[in-house]
Structures are given as structure tokens and as C-alpha cells.
Write a protein that binds this DNA or RNA. Sequence first.
DNA 1: TCTGGGGTCCTTTTCCTT
DNA 2: TCTGAAGGAAAAGGACCC
Length: 395
Amino acid sequence: MATQGTPPPSPPRRIAHLDMDAFYASVELLRYPQLRDLPVVVGGRRVAAPEATGSPAQWPLHAFARLRHYTGRGVVTTASYAARAHGVGSAMPLMQAARLCPDAILLPADFDEYRRWSRAFKAIAQEVAPCMEDRGIDEVYLDFTHVPGGQRDGGRAMARLIQRAIAEQTGLSCSLGVAPNKLLAKMASDMQKPGGITVLQPHDLRTHVWPMPCRKVHGIGPKASERLQQHGIHTIGELAAQPLPWLRAEFGASHGQWLHDAAWGRDDRPVQTHSEPVSMSRETTFEEDLHPRHHKAALGEHLDRLCHQLALDLQRKGYVGKTIGIKLRYRNFEVITRDQTLAQPVAAAGAIRHAATQCLRRADLSRSLRLLGVRVANLQRPTDAAQPNPNLALF
DNA sequence: TCTGGGGTCCTTTTCCTT
DNA sequence: TCTGAAGGAAAAGGACCC
């Protein structure tokens, strides 16, 4: 029956952001229960293997490598909360972390294992709230809006349900934020870590969001934060107080508008349940810097290996790509990229290497390199692609 | 003091064509 | 043949995220 009145009001959006707590380190603590409550740092490349045999869970503490013995390059991937108490944090150089907490246990990252646990916690969350957006290995957005019970207590009841299910079925801890949109949900999930649930309502903006530093906004990084501070803008509230025309003039129309919207908690992006990859890449930092002229063979081997890995990645995931690129990081950390778009998409290691070599010819090869990377972009499904070029298929 | 690897997205610059 | 404008695509760089 047609009604003459207004349609029934749609329920308020309840968007949740779920963030696993110290994900990699927590997975390692489940594998090695004897490390519980000890400072554990995940990272580094060639960590000495534990000098023990038998079931890893039975290894004595002394069998694990200590951070103080680490000598290579690299940064901390994740630190357990016990390690964070010593000031160790993600992205910190391992040598610096070693000074802060020399006795920390150092474990190599095992991404295959983390991906297994990642799939597990996502499946549990999705069973409760099917509308899920994958945001990387340790976080997701969920849309509770139309899930039965999703509106109860502002979304808190459903968040608690998911948090408890993940804890019971995996032993892992997570934090959730529920808000009217993704921007606020993301901020909310970070407010009470670890193990917290934070529900933000529109009227909480002034009291809970505006006092926070601008850097807490997802999308305001160190550079934007620094620029804002130069204008005396330190908190999200101070950002919200800036006139829109000034922001647009100062930061560009698009970015200025976005800063203004973000400060006012406005964000209407939907929870995206599907996405296609844009590019795939492989890169490696050398143990010691390599000079293109003096270490030609070694660089060639690195390039070969990267191209082969990339070809395997593409084939495993079922993609071909038209644009091939390289990335070089020089000793002074300067980064350059060169890329080339081919007539036909490719996925074979030989074809990637051929194009990458062409790109290398256009780069400055008179200086020592710290890192070499290879990238394939412009990805397509092979069925979408034009008929493969038989000449390229030979590689 | 030393700074990883895998991504996305945006802006600016360069190059090509008309 | 030269020149410049305009527009689009590709290339390059940079900020940001996990």
C-alpha cells in the first residue's frame, strides 16, 4: 500500500572497526606460551634459529634469540605489550630497540602463519556481521546497521559478541570501535587498546574527538601534521575551527575539503566488501649496499629472484599486468622509480625481467644501492586481457 | 642511531597527439 | 616547417597505511 507520509526512518549507520591487538606478537605468544608476559619483538631477517629440538612449545627460554645479539638491518614489525612497556614500538630500527630492551626475545616474522590466523578471526567476525571490508592482515570494517541486534546499545552488544567469539575461538584479543562512519569507527577502536570497545555517537565529537591531536585522524600523517602545527593547529577541534575557504586555499581544494570533513567527523564511504588489487610488488633491502658496476652479478641475481617471486605471486592469484616498474633506494635513502607500459599484459618472470631491465637503463647506476624492487601494475585477469603475445610467452 | 616490505591513492611532471 | 595550445596517458614522486 502506498503511503502518503514519509518513508520509515532508516536506522542510524553502525560501522565498526575491528583492530587486532599486537597481532603478530600475540600469535607468537600463542605458539610459544612460555614467552607470555615477556618482552617479545617480531622482526629482522636472519634471526638465529632456536638451539633446541622437539616441540617448539617445549623450548626452554634460553633457546630463543635475544634482541641484544641482533646485528643486521631491519625494523621492529610488532612488539608485545611487555616490550612496548620498554618503549619499543613498530617501525623502530632493531638496533635502537636492542638498546631499549636488550633481553627481549626476537622472533622472525612468519607471514604464512599470521595469514592463517587472519583468515580465522575474519571468518568469525563475518559469521556475525556478513558485511565486512578487509583492511589488511589485522583489521576490518563491519557494517552492523542492518544486522539483527546491530543497533542494540549503539552497537556495543554486537561488538562484545564478536570480541568474545574471537577470544574464545582463537585466544586472540582485539579492540573495536563503533560509530556512524568508518573515519570515527577507526578512531574509536584506538581509544581503549588493548581489549576495548568504544562506541562513539555524533554528540561525542566535541568531547571525545576534538581534544585529540590531528595525527589521530586516519590519513593525517607526519607531514600533514607538521604543516598543521606550523599554523598553530594541534587538535582536531582546532582543525574543525578553521574556515573551509582557508583550508582549501592552504592545502588544495580536495585535501582542504577532506581535512574539514574529517575534523567534523563526516565520512560517507561505504563498507566495501570487494576490491581488486591494483599492483603487486617485491622488493629487498640488501645486507650491504651494492654498486651497480662493482656488484653486477649479485644485483642480477637479486633481480632474477624478485622477478620470479613476482611472477609466482601473479600466477598464484591469477593476474597479468601491463605496467612493469622498478624501484631503487640509494645509500642516502633517496628513492627513484622507473616504469614502462607494455603493449600486452604479462605474468612470466622472463617478460617482467626484460621490462625491468629496460627500466633500469633509465636510472642513475653510478651510485650504490640499498634496495631494489620490482612492481607490476595495471593488473587484469588473463581472460580480460587481449590474446597473449606468443613472443612474450616464450620467456 | 638507523631507518622493512607490501600496498593504495593523489598530485605533478613529462610526453605525445591533434 | 614551425609554434603554441589543449588534452590525455604515462611516468615519477610523495604521503600515508598496516
